[in-house]
Design a protein around this nucleic acid. Structure first.
Lengths: 338, 338
DNA sequence: TTGAAAGCGCTAACAA
DNA sequence: TTGTTAGCGCTTTCAA
């Protein structure tokens, strides 16, 4: 049998209350007893039972991270930031990676009711108004990352501004037929990136041509942000023949990777025949020499945890809404002045 | 306050024992009461408190996954398999991703003592004999993935065989100066891949030339399996000038990506000047058109969970040691007959 | 400063 | 078939 607080108390010749106080360094324990208890704990290799503690304290020291399973590198980078922050504050992390966006509510419900965690981080996934209300009403902390709800805390990047600078960069190189491959518009980052693209065109006085905008199919994954969809979208653009765009802003690096393949298969080269800019700056972008818009993924994860833990620990400050800046990373795929 | 089993019992006009039995579908509950209880549960939106349940049952329905933080895609793929299997069996997953291999023991200790989880999956990380014994003695289930210990359950790939087929493929194309870039030899997969490489040379009657073997520095990460180390290793090989190898087997795709960059920077081309084969078949390999040795990562994760849950649920079968087959995925980086 | 005892919300053994 | 009760291992009053 595992060693419990009773074993420690007996061995140290004190009551269990004292042991508990010693562990949780309460003020009113004499240095002498504290030392004795601590040494017995070391000797017996005692460690408090997490569940028992959770039950008594009504606090689990654990957070849930809910994330779409197919997110790949974006998620991996965010997760690194999350992990770093979580470990630093001695919390544990339960990962729910879900394969269909529709199941989001089911997991939110679980985390809300089961009380296995003290708060939740919802990444790249939409929350319904109904559940937003549940969280608000029960004062259960939640923060959204790469997602948005008007009543909840959220951390996103300036998607619109990122798309704007990407498109403007292409424009500044002399391109006039600039296309865009976007993710599914039910994703709000995808919507915002489209706005940025259109804004850049408008500023340059170039009319929007809807033949040049392809909204990705959902092939796999949540929202069309995947390689296959980028590949197919590019094929549609190439089918325009001579009227095809000379430059394309793609709403994610993964899709851009697919687009590059389609271009190469068509016997064309990047950036000579077609210039490309992606979005995210995941690791693959560097391998592919892809110009892209960098999202500060690590920072997003880190910041999200900081905010979540602050809420868990009783911070009552008003709603938190942070939009981080993006940054254009210029590599060879966008080419030079034409 | 959250709704408890007492609320349900009162509302349904039964004792809490009956509610408990209805929830956990015990046999001896009449259909009538069961239905009533269940409908009250739905009405009150009751969900059992995970901690209370864990405490009473001495079972948390949660497993820990301990993984080095820098593993990248390999881990991501394994994790997909893990997640799928875990969800299917209604377990939760606590993720501990650690930044220094030396901290492994610290986390193993935590999982072992704190009783927050029912078992642990240790991925790509070594366990000391001392801790292996702790787990064995306390009958606490653990399974190793991409790692090995002579007394514990483990799932690995046939690293040696994989390296052998890769090297033999290069040899079969006519190469005689075949080099290798390996990870740090304290990693057993790295050791095994080296053995496979040497075995292939021996079978072909080619003497081993130690100028052609580069053991990666640890630049970042656990074991030298990273891009930067591959890049530097390749530069060392290129420094051999005319005597440089004409083909190279690299012990991971990530390192191969770095090697490719070094080759391109030197103004050489792949596969014409130098043929390359990687290991893992992570997503990047496909983007880079890299011939590689595929590890069945998803299957490893899945299988590991299946085994772990079986142990948790009382399976007393003898030690489990599985070595999965690898598969050569031929793309363009290995070239054709010379 | 300390010990005793009452929960935390559940499961499971025991009675009925 | 059901209700009652004694834990599970801890924290936290309340007294002393």
């Amino acid at each position: 049998m595992a060693v419990t607080i009773y074993d420690v108390a007996r061995e140290a010749g004190v009551g269990i209350g004292t042991v508990s106080r010693a562990i949780n360094n309460h003020p009113h324990v004499s240095q002498k007893t504290r030392d004795r208890v601590l040494s017995v704990i070391k000797e017996l290799k005692y460690q408090p039972h997490a569940m028992a503690r959770g039950l008594a304290r009504k606090k689990t020291n654990t957070i849930a991270v809910i994330v779409p399973v197919f997110t790949g590198y974006f998620f991996l980078e965010v997760l690194k930031g999350v992990q770093q922050a979580v470990i630093q504050d001695h919390y544990d992390l339960i990962l729910y990676s879900i394969d269909q966006a529709e199941k989001t509510d089911q997991f939110l419900k679980k985390t809300l009711r089961e009380k296995r965690v003290d708060g939740v981080l919802l990444i790249s996934l939409k929350i319904t108004d109904q559940y937003a209300r549940y969280f608000l009403d029960s004062e259960f902390p939640i923060v959204l990352v790469d997602s948005y709800h008007q009543e909840l805390d959220s951390i996103t990047v300036q998607n619109q501004q990122g798309a704007l600078i990407a498109t403007e960069h292409l424009l500044s190189l002399g391109h006039r037929q600039v296309g865009m491959i976007d993710g599914q518009l039910k994703s709000s980052p995808a919507q915002d990136r489209l706005l940025g693209y259109k804004a850049a065109l408008a500023k340059a006085g170039i009319p929007f041509d809807d033949r040049y905008l392809i909204i990705s199919d959902i092939v796999t994954g949540q929202d069309g942000f995947n390689r296959e969809s980028g590949y197919r979208a590019m094929q549609r653009l190439l089918a325009l023949g001579d009227e095809r765009p000379t430059a394309i802003f793609v709403s994610s690096d993964i899709q851009a990777a697919g687009a590059l393949r389609a271009i190469h298969e068509a016997g064309l080269t990047v950036p000579e025949d077609i210039a490309i800019i992606g979005f995210d700056d995941v690791e693959i972008a560097e391998y592919l020499d892809l110009t892209t818009v960098r999202q500060p993924m690590y920072e997003m994860g880190q910041l999200a945890v900081k905010r979540l833990l602050a809420c868990i620990e009783g911070d009552k400050s008003p709603r938190f809404e942070k939009h981080l800046d993006t940054q254009l990373i210029v590599r060879s795929s966008s080419g030079v002045q034409i």
